[in-house]
């Protein structure tokens, strides 16, 4: 099937294709650049592109969450990690020598993921327009049906907090 030139393709579809391309490019770039600070910048862009995709898919709350948690907090955390582990912020990463097992695995993974995409992509019968949701109904589901999961998530976060403090505390060798 032709990817472009189809008269049926709408503006939203064009936007989707563009944002997807941005996401793939920024993701790849963030892993390929030699400078860690540039990596952070690329990944921040990636997060923003994804947030835009979420808005496009009628999930505005998730989009906001993506912006706040990922583009904001996670990016800052990663930057903080870079800052405290380096004497100079802009220093180049040593050339990445490749180990044979990872390369083989990555190759296989790429093949299989492609196969999966084709396989699943062939499934037809999905509705033709995205289902919009009120954020309030999402909130009701989240604090109603999924209340226990939210509690569990909170507990995991508490545990992670305690673990993180334990890991970085002074005097530990």
């Amino acid at each position: 099937m032709p990817l472009l030139g189809d008269s049926q393709v709408s503006l939203a579809d064009w936007a989707f294709l563009a944002l997807g391309a941005v996401a793939v490019v920024t993701a790849a770039a963030s892993l390929l650049v030699r400078e860690l600070v540039h990596t952070i910048l690329w990944i921040a862009t990636f997060f923003v592109a994804l947030a835009a995709l979420y808005f496009l898919l009628e999930a505005p709350f998730l989009g906001v969450l993506q912006l706040g948690v990922y583009a904001g907090a996670v990016t800052i955390l990663l930057l903080f990690g870079v800052m405290v582990t380096r004497k100079r912020i802009f220093s180049r990463e040593a050339a990445t020598g490749l180990r044979p097992a990872p390369i083989a695995a990555a190759g296989l993974a790429a093949v299989v993921v492609g196969a999966v995409a084709v396989e699943v992509g062939g499934v037809a019968g999905l509705p033709s327009s995205p289902q919009p949701y009120e954020t309030t109904s999402l909130s009701a589901a989240l604090f109603g049906t999924y209340g226990p999961w939210l509690w569990l998530l909170g507990l995991v976060m508490m545990a992670a907090l305690a673990g993180a403090i334990y890991l970085v505390r002074e005097g530990r060798e």
Binding site: M1, D13, F16, A23, V116, V120, G122, V123, A124, P130
Partner: peptide, 16 residues
Amino acid sequence: MTLDPFTTAGLVGLSG
């Protein structure tokens, strides 16, 4: 917004 199976494949392809 309309997404046909082709676009579906495209999106799953994107996440893949």
